[in-house]
Design a protein around this nucleic acid. Structure first.
Lengths: 299, 299
DNA sequence: CGGATGTTCGTCGAATCAGGCAATAATTGA
DNA sequence: TCAATTATTGCCTGATTCGACGAACATCCG
């Protein structure tokens, strides 16, 4: 048994390495599947994780959400259910043994369906859980992922088999340790789902300046309950979340569209450039101008 | 506006009448859709209603569930979310103006999906609701149903358009007065859903003799909570429900397969023929032999 | 029915945030 | 190089948000 596990692990490493022969983010013919490779440890990189499963195959990766630190190494998987602004960095990688990671986006509809059909699932005990969790991959999941990647070698079969394997992965996730996290997300009317909707709303309308109490009302919660559950799910307060979103978007605007700081500030919903600058420094370590310059140079 | 409503109602009546030109149950090219016609009032007829929507177009119909009586006439719709052993009969029908009814089976998967995607739906207030409810049809729903029936005239389009209209109907149901009833059914982990699963289990395994407390355990409820919710959803106690299922199945066996009473009794899980006979009389009004004879003659 | 458990919600003090203004630093273009 | 523009920082004020607490409420279970 142990032999087989090791074999699978090796197989996965080999497959991922074959596809990601160079450093960078490799998309595949399976749209939901990406493979990452890094030959050296990286600086902290703020980014947004959506509904999906991430797996470290080789090397080590660290993700921080608010104040919390999550480390996951080979054989461990990280699942996120709502868009979370995290800071991620590769902590362990070398040219000889580069970091290799897999990311698979999950489909909410499929999850909802599968969860609804799961027979006699135990009811969820706690009403809200963190939208992020780390679990050691079990054999079945690893095997399914391996098959998914092997499928890349037979492109003509992808449209037919990839959805099946993805569904299998979802069923396995729902039955495993990640299950409760996922089930919360699709439990109709549960606080978690309401928060997920609020988060989705924020992601869409981050420019607008809606008072958090109003947002709480639209998901039918009192302000205090809303805050409480939001924090439980997203790992930070609603306002912090919104700020993260705005600042990251502003960074993108400045980096990709050469926008100047004050325009970007206005664009993402800030009315005061000074406030923008202040909070930008707090999140990214340096004020807008300098941060962008550094980013440009580091490439 | 009123003119249009009346127009729609008339259109629906005409369409249903066109399809159901003779008395009986008419299935259509849309598998989920059936149309009923009766030229006279009928005797009480015990049967099982599953997940679906029933609509009286012309005439009047009565349905009893346990002790409760539900009447629905033209323009009213009855929705059921789990299999319920009801007694139904047409109360108002004539040759000139026959009873006309429509039944549309709903797809649980589609409901689950749509419910999950409904934005900012109010959370469900009560934890369990009766799996059966009657609501006056609103205009949008009537219109969608009308279009669904009109579609029968263009068979080549059915595979493409019928699913769309059915989904529209589900969305409208979820947003209407029936909404809470349906949402309960698909709320992952809710007592209603647990009960729905128990009901499904019973429907499958009614022959086995599982203690109700064990069944309660498999859906993760204490016996008392199970009984309470079961009653709220199904309108009768678990044991009554089981009896209904068994007796109706036995009746089918005797009618369709000419099985004798004691064999049928054993077949559906009774160990004592006398107990079977007693309960049979209580449900159908007459003991097995005589009931079957009467049924045969009445055809 | 009644005790035990967990959830919601309003309130409150403390903390944080947003924006205004002004001074200073950095960058850009002439 | 200087001047003009833009970015950054400090500080202040009012508004908002945060998180904790306890009462009210619903649910579960025996």
């Amino acid at each position: 048994m142990l032999a087989k596990v090791n074999q699978n692990e090796e197989a996965l490493t080999r497959l991922a390495g074959d596809i990601a022969q160079t450093d960078g983010n490799h998309s595949t013919r399976i749209p939901a599947l990406m493979i990452f490779r890094r030959s050296s440890a990286t600086d902290p990189m703020p980014c947004i994780y959506g509904l999906g499963l991430a797996l470290t195959v080789q090397g080590d990766k660290r993700v921080t959400l608010g104040e919390e630190v999550y480390d996951y190494g080979p054989g461990q998987s990280l699942i996120t259910t709502v868009d979370l602004p995290v800071v991620s960095y590769v902590t362990q990688a070398s040219t000889a043994k580069p970091y290799l990671g897999i990311r698979l986006e999950l489909d909410a509809r499929t999850i909802a369906q599968s969860a609804a059909e799961m027979e006699f699932a135990a009811p969820l005990k706690v009403s809200t859980t963190r939208a992020l969790s780390i679990v050691t991959l079990d054999e079945g999941l690893r095997d399914a992922l391996t098959r998914l990647i092997q499928l890349l070698a037979e492109p003509q079969l992808i449209p037919f088999l990839a959805p099946l394997i993805q569904q299998e992965i979802i069923v396995r996730l729902l039955n495993g340790e990640h299950g409760p996290t996922l089930r919360h997300l699709v439990a109709v009317g549960s606080p978690s789902q309401q928060i997920a909707k609020a988060v989705a709303w924020l992601k869409q309308h981050y420019k607008e300046n809606m008072p958090m109490d109003d947002l709480a009302a639209t998901v039918h919660m009192s302000p205090s309950t809303f805050r409480q559950h939001f924090r439980a799910v997203a790992g930070m307060s609603p306002l912090q979340y919104l700020k993260n979103l705005r600042l990251q978007e502003a960074r993108q605007l400045m980096l990709n569209e050469d926008m100047d700081a004050s325009s970007a500030a206005v664009r993402v919903g800030y009315e005061s450039a000074s406030q923008f600058s202040r909070e930008y420094s707090r999140l990214f370590g340096e004020p807008p101008q300098r941060d962008i310059k550094r980013m440009r140079e580091s490439i």
